[in-house]
Design a protein around this nucleic acid. Structure first.
Lengths: 262, 262
DNA sequence: CGACTAGTTGAGGCCAGTCAATGTTGGTGG
DNA sequence: CCACCAACATTGACTGGCCTCAACTAGTCG
């Protein structure tokens, strides 16, 4: 089987969908291979690679996937074949246990990489759902590994990527384990703020892509609690909220809230 | 600087200790290099390596560290140089934030590998504290990376190790985000049970190495709550507790508790 | 023995969950 | 354009689970 056939298999996700509704993922093979011109290359795995290596890296990133809002990029139980770099849009990752316990494990925006959850068992364990129409670059993992064996810089990048995921989850653990509701929400807002800033957007004004329920699930709270806290923060002049539009009026005060007693 | 000098630097931790009390870590260089005979080789990074590669791997594992109960293997802020395989004993890892927020992030026993927390920033972000006198094999990370570039099996093993840590933390997230106190404790006990079983110990009778406070910190609960739950589980005939000695009398019922409603 | 740490148990309070009613928004079709 | 509907969001009243504070007990080590 040649490379393009493998890529088609990956791109078209040839295993049967586990769920009733069809996956309407579409693919643009033609537009692939532009890492060296990608505005996100300083956020992606190409960090640390020189121009030549980036060109070589483009050979790996040979497929793009577009999915619509609410559609899934991968589902629990599906074989793990690739990581996905978010080229545009955003997604959430959702954990589901046998007993039906469900939790939003993360919220990911452009320039970030999702799919690591499948690396441990070689099957995806979580679900990635687009929160808006989104586009992803497919990074076939076996080819990444091969590249990493030849290039220590990419190896480093890959390790750092995995380690960053560990670090991110550790922070979530800390939040869930030690913070009270208002601290969790403040922490969530400041985290978003920082990440939007890193991407060149406003750090004080942004649109939430998640519902109150999804935010609550991520923060270990109920949607009513989240809603109440938004209202309270607004009353206290910390933020302005109109539905999903949020403006941070006093980030310093939010930071202070997080620092308060155990 | 030759290899043994590097190892000495690692072993004797030449950077100044951040805390008042001295680190009394001792080292046995002489006993290193026995991976091929180690009873834990099927749990360690050597999984998947053949005899020859395991022999080669021994060259990497060139130092052992012994530390006493309550002493630290590494501290936040220290440069990351190596991963540590627990050869005997156990340890906890503790997260500390700037604001003094503190949480036990994990409990690790023999055959497990700690220190991954330093990989992201190249500085350790958590503290590893021995819960009993313990012995660790030092795996210098640069040499691991070098080996992984030459041997795809070790590369796989390393990736799986990192991915397993991601998966472990995801489970902790789920626990902290969706479970009530009794479910968290049940989940904790069954997790220990499984891991002791995997190591050839009894899965129903074991000694806790952590205090109630440490367990509580890990589970996002207060020590009083943990204590009360132990008592209640005992009243209900689920377990027997005498201080830190625990006997699971009805693991199935513990499993059921976890499965209960949201 | 006394000091100390770890653990247990009780009483009461508060934070967040639960249940429920109402308001708002966005998409669809007449 | 508006009516309608479903999904999302807000707000209130009440409940309950876990925390807080506190007293007491059981080991442990000098």
């Amino acid at each position: 089987m040649d490379a393009s056939a493998i890529l088609e298999r990956i791109a078209f996700r040839d295993e049967p969908a586990k769920s009733a509704e069809p996956i309407r993922a579409r693919i643009n093979v033609g537009t692939a291979g532009l890492c060296s011109e990608c505005s996100l290359r300083h956020l992606c795995l190409t960090v640390g690679l020189d121009a030549l290596a980036t060109k070589a890296f483009e050979q790996i990133v040979s497929a793009r996937v577009r999915i619509g809002k609410g559609e899934t990029l991968f589902r629990p139980g599906e074989p793990f074949r690739a990581l996905y770099a978010i080229r545009s849009g955003s997604c959430k990752s959702v954990l589901v246990t046998e007993e039906g316990r469900e939790q939003v494990a993360g919220y990911h925006m452009r320039g970030e990489i999702v799919g690591i959850d499948g690396l441990s068992t070689r099957f995806h364990e979580s679900e990635a759902v687009a929160l808006e129409d989104s586009e992803f670059c497919t990074l076939p993992f076996d080819r990444l590994e091969e590249f990493a064996r030849r290039d220590a810089r990419l190896q480093h990048g890959l390790h750092r990527l995995l380690a960053a995921e560990v670090a991110r989850e550790r922070n979530v653990m800390l939040m869930l384990g030690t913070m009270r509701a208002e601290q969790r929400l403040a922490s969530f807002l400041l985290d978003l703020s920082r990440r939007y800033r890193d991407r060149g957007y406003s750090s004080t004004e942004f649109i939430l892509r998640m519902t109150r329920e999804e935010i609550g699930s991520f923060l270990g709270l109920k949607l009513e609690t989240v809603s109440r806290l938004f209202s309270r923060f607004q009353e206290e002049g910390l933020i302005e909220v109109h539905g999903r539009a949020v403006k941070l009026r006093n980030p310093a005060a939010l930071k202070e809230i997080i620092g308060q007693r155990g």
